[in-house]
Design a protein around this nucleic acid. Sequence first.
DNA 1: TTAAATTAAGATAAAAGACTCTTAAATACT
DNA 2: AGTATTTAAGAGTCTTTTATCTTAATTTAA
Lengths: 150, 150
Amino acid sequence: MLLSKACIYGLRSSLFLATYESGTYVSIKEISETLDISFHFLTKILQQLTGAGILESQKGPNGGVRLSKPSSELCLFIIVEAIDGTEIFTECVLGLKGCGTQKPCPMHEKWGKKRDDIQEMLKSTTLLELVEKGKAGNLRITSKGDFEWQ
Amino acid sequence: MLLSKACIYGLRSSLFLATYESGTYVSIKEISETLDISFHFLTKILQQLTGAGILESQKGPNGGVRLSKPSSELCLFIIVEAIDGTEIFTECVLGLKGCGTQKPCPMHEKWGKKRDDIQEMLKSTTLLELVEKGKAGNLRITSKGDFEWQ
DNA sequence: TTAAATTAAGATAAAAGACTCTTAAATACT
DNA sequence: AGTATTTAAGAGTCTTTTATCTTAATTTAA
C-alpha cells in the first residue's frame, strides 16, 4: 500500500469537504458517518490537517472543519505530505538508506522516474478537479458507493 | 512504502544470488550476513520464493539456495508477486474496495496509469539487467555499500 | 448561566508487520 | 554410523499502525 490508511482517510475527507459550499463547517461526525471511518481515528487525522493549515476547525455547536482554501488551490500532494510525509517520494525501492544520485542502487534511476511521476500527479491534481470529475461521472468516494454528489 | 520489508529483502537476496555462477548453492547465512538481514526472518522469506519456484533449496552441508532459472529469465515482478502478492497492482489509491472500471473513484484513471507503469517496469526488469548495471557502475545493494561485485 | 454540541488530547487496546528463538528434518562428509 | 551443517517449520516477542475509549476544553444557544 502506497499510502497509509490515515492518509487515505485524510484524502477522502478533504474530497468530501470540497463538495460543500466554501466556508461551511462540517462536523467530523458527519464525515465519519458518510465515509464510514472511525470517528475518533478520523478526528486525529483531521487534527493533523488542521495543524498543517489545510483545514480550519471550529468547536461547539454548528462547529466542525472546513477547507482553509478554495478546492482549486488544494492539491493531493500537500495532504499526503501532511499525513505521510515526503519520505515516500525519496525512499529507495530496495530500502537502502541514503540511496540517491551520489551512491545509487541498480534500480535508482528507473524507480526514481516512477516516484517522480506519482509526485507530479499528486501535485497537479486538485480537489476541485476530482469533485468535478466525481459529479460528472457519479463516481465513488465511499466503499459502499452510496454517496450522493450535491 | 510500496513494498513490504520482506519483499525488499527477497529482491535484494535474489539480486545477490544472481551474482553467483548459475547452479551454485549459497547458504542463507551468507546472504543474511552480506546483506545485513536477520537470518531467521530471511529464511522464511526465501522459503516463500522456494515455494513459488523462483529459488531451489538444498539442505545440509554445502547446501543453500539458488535461482531456479537464469537471471535473464527472472524479472522483479514475479518476486514481488510471490511475496507481496498482486493486490498492490489492482488496489485503489483511495482504498475503495472494488474500485475498477465498472465503478471507479475520481482518481481511478490517473492512478491506474501509474500503477500499470510500475508493474510494467517490474515485469521488464530482469535480475541480469540489474547485475550488469550494478557491476558496470559499482552500485549498492547493501545499506553500508560495502558489497563487492564479482 | 446552564446545557448541549463539538473539537482536542491522552490513554488504552487490537491488529498487523517485522523480527527472534527453538526444535525438527534432511544431507553431506568423515 | 555419527556428527556437523543447513533449510524447514512453528511458536513467541517486539514495534508500528490502526482503532477505541475517556476526559477536557471550547463554543453556541436557549
